[in-house]
Amino acid sequence: MKPTSPQVIFVTITAENEQQRIDNFLRTQLKGVPKSMIYRILRKGEVRVNKKRVKPEYKLVCGDQIRIPPVRVAETTEPAVSAKLNKVANLEHAILFEDDYILVLNKPSGIAVHGGSGLSFGVIEGLRALRPDARFLELVHRIDRETSGVLLIAKKRSALRSLHEQLRLKQMQKDYLALVQGNWPSACKVVEAPLFKNMLQSGERIVRVNQDGKPAETRFKVEERFDFATLVKASPVTGRTHQIRVHTQYTGHPIAFDDRYGEKEFDQKLISTGLNRLFLHAAQVQFTHPKTQEKMTVAAPLDKTLQQCLNQLRLQKQQE
């Protein structure tokens, strides 16, 4: 392992990188450098924009002159994530749509969207291993590790900006399917409850309904009723951490197999159906294609575990 020869780099920002946060820009420029080091060189003023210090949240402007300090990174002969790993290779089969601008994935449950916090890799690292020639691959949004379903990835900076703008203006609709405890009331079509995020000493995030929190709104529609559970469609208007999971818990109808906000007794009733994971699935997303301006709807089918659970519940209902 030889260390690369460190040297100062000067970069001029073009329209392709305009409005990108400086910390995210540095991560694309300094491959393999830990995030902690990137924030350290920003904090110490070693990174300069137009000869001035900037904060990590600074958004780049076309024409900005960036000074990137020498950072010593060990060379490796192989990529950090191998495309031959089963989990990585399986991502290829999970692609629902792809062109030169976007990639839409049916993310499997159990895989984080990005590495970190003890995880060797996530979806984005896996896709970069599968697409080594792709100059740009960035998450448009995030879904929880145990949640499956539609995940948007931008393949160009312009596409990322367009899709982020649609999210900001609430022009993108995301519909989830969740199996919740009990009989969800038909009259409960909207839940508006502010969410406050707490970070525990362990680093775990716990979200609670709290008046000091950020506004959050989720729309609900009953899809199917079972003896002790309801399949609901949940459409978040805002995009807060764990929003659907906390809003369903708040109404007294937590999601099946939710290890943070769920009910053990409810989960026990579902073991016979073969369910062993959070029943929350990003089923569909509607958005405008960033290049063609075509209105697009991409749907992600349920995996075998979720589909089997529903089939068993339907069978139990018919037998009674």
Rank of each mutant, 00 (worst) to 15 (best):
R53H: 04
V104D: 11
K2P: 03
E217H: 08
A134Y: 04
R131H: 09
L91P: 00
Q312G: 01
L96F: 02
D99Y: 01
S109G: 11
G274M: 03
S109V: 02
E92H: 14
P69S: 07
R135N: 15
K84V: 03
K55H: 10
F228A: 08
E204R: 15
L231G: 00
R21N: 02
L163Q: 10
Q19V: 01
K52M: 08
D175V: 04
R43Y: 07
F266T: 02
L137D: 12
Q19A: 05
K51M: 08
L231H: 07
I271E: 15
G32I: 00
Q166Y: 03
S235D: 10
R43W: 12
K269Q: 15
L151F: 06
I9Q: 15
L130N: 14
K52I: 00
F266W: 13
F25W: 13
L306Y: 11
T248N: 11
D175M: 11
M172L: 14
S162K: 14
E125H: 02
V54Q: 14
I38H: 10
L275Y: 13
D23M: 03
K264N: 13
A300W: 14
P236G: 05
I68C: 06
V61A: 09
Q318T: 09
I206G: 08
A83G: 03
Q19P: 02
D23N: 09
E138G: 04
E217F: 05
Q318H: 12
F257I: 00
V88A: 06
V123R: 05
S109C: 08
F279Q: 07
G115D: 09
A229D: 12
K31S: 09
A80M: 07
H141A: 03
P6L: 02
R40T: 01
A83P: 06
K304I: 05
R168W: 06
F196L: 14
A129H: 10
K31M: 03
D23H: 05
E16N: 13
V191Q: 13
L151R: 13
Q173R: 15
Q171Y: 07
G118M: 02
V180S: 06
G149W: 07
L177T: 00
A216C: 03
V123D: 04
L270T: 06
E192R: 14
Q312T: 14
V191Y: 06
F279C: 03
C309K: 10
F279E: 04
E16M: 01
F226Y: 14
F121K: 11
V140F: 10
Q20D: 11
L91R: 12
